[in-house]
Design a protein around this nucleic acid. Structure first.
Lengths: 161, 161
DNA sequence: AAAGTTTATCAGTTTAACATGATGTTCGCT
DNA sequence: AGCGAACATCATGTTAAACTGATAAACTTT
């Protein structure tokens, strides 16, 4: 039930990146360390978010991933969407023809519940979650800082999408 | 997102069986016709529901599946549970250690949304859905009846020939 | 007891998600 | 220009869910 693991990783990674925004771009290896997921797999996932306009990526030294826009304007739905479209409000029993015209037995009651979840995903922003729990935010940022070996990283250069 | 197809089939099948309770046990082939799913696959799914105490099965002619108890006492959660435990209220970002003690950034807000879904699954009964939409209930029962006529099945409860 | 109907079960295929390893590409630095 | 760091991509492997076909077991009727 709920999100696929890829969508979960997507959300978690974006939260890490947004939480460490002040420290510059976050590298895949750092995210992999925090999430405990394979590096190359996350790389693909993050690249999908770049194509979706959620993230920006920079190659080379001082490179990594950043948010493409202010966290106040980035909803959870937009982060999840590339992996499982939120708009697909599917029938509880999986009937293809289910809808307001030809509802299944569960349609009406389930619709109100599903709409509630969708509203959460569409209205809640990354900024909301960050300020919601500063402790968790700080924790993941500290994990990333300690993963950074030395002070060799400098302010990042140009960014490409 | 949402339920696995097996859990969806499970719910849909139970609704069919409950809706046709007056016509006696429902056969796998009839359910397969209504759901548009492979017979043997549903057979396994239904057997799981038998082991879970949701359904009763009878072999041989006049056999099929029936509810193990009154639909008023059968919640959606119990029908779904064998396939994906509802109680596993998982973390939105998939963190294993997420909980009230060590919450992830999304934990608090997501918990209230997830609890709402759980409440729906735990409080809503099969009987509720049946009476909710008599049109859909009647439709599936008619589909089963017509599948039965073409098979010359003896009506339940009457003595024939 | 035999025949026919229906569920139960087993062995295997297919498919998609998840994961891994190797290699290519872009960039900053010297 | 050349080196190394970092993302990008490709080819492949692994795993679990979904599905299929065949056979066994249980039951009803005759």
């Amino acid at each position: 039930m709920w999100l696929s693991s890829t969508a979960q990783n997507s959300l978690h990674a974006v939260l890490c990146i947004a939480g460490s925004a002040d420290d510059g771009p976050v590298r895949v290896d750092e995210i992999a360390a925090v999430l405990g997921r394979p590096r190359n797999y996350l790389s693909k996932t993050l690249h999908t978010l770049v194509r979706a306009g959620v993230l920006l990526s920079t190659r080379g030294p001082t490179g990594g991933f950043q948010l493409a826009e202010k966290p106040e304007r980035l909803t959870l739905a937009r982060v999840i969407a590339p992996f499982e479209p939120v708009s697909e409000r599917r029938c509880l029993v999986g009937r293809a023809t289910c809808g307001d015209a030809h509802p299944c037995a569960a349609h009406r009651r389930w619709s109100t519940v599903a709409a509630n979840v969708e509203k959460f995903l569409n209205k809640t922003t990354i900024a909301t979650l960050l300020s919601d729990n500063p402790r968790a935010t700080r924790a993941s940022r500290e994990m990333i800082r300690s993963a950074r070996l030395s002070n060799r990283r400098k302010p990042h250069g140009s960014v490409k999408r």
